[in-house]
Amino acid sequence: MNISWRKIWPPLFTAFLLGLAFYSSFLTLRSIWTTYRIFRTGMDDPSVWAERLSGLENSLPKGFNVIGYLSDGELPGVPYNLIDHDEEFVMSQYFLAPRVLEFGANRLLVVGNISSPTVTPSYVEGQFNLTLIKNFGWGISLYERKKP
């Protein structure tokens, strides 16, 4: 039998590439399905964070364009995860917009997002010369700068 490789190679290679493509899609869709089954609606980080910040957002007085922001990363000697630190900061910035969040305690109002169980509100008050206004749970609290 006379086999013409010139005619056989193209469909063979294309079939190989298509096989790869469909297998890749299968893996992607399977991973998406797994993610969907685990998380579903309202289980993603920003949705959870929006819920946590809702009390604080409603308590913020008007007229404050820039607010301080303290998290574990700003506390001396407190261990923290850099990824969580960044992620929580930008989520807080998103949900508290149009107010601008500024790292540190140099503003009249300061949002605290401290997850370390060893750090108490009184420690934060003493360390940064602040007064606790309200604790919203989940480590979220609102502080006011002490008047001189």
């Binding site: 998406i32 399905w33 993610t35 969907y36 579903r40 609606t41 993603d44 920003p46 949705s47």
Partner: peptide, 9 residues
């Protein structure tokens, strides 16, 4: 659609 539902933001 499924992926969007799991991360709407």
């Amino acid at each position: 659609f499924l992926l969007t539902v799991t991360r709407p933001y």
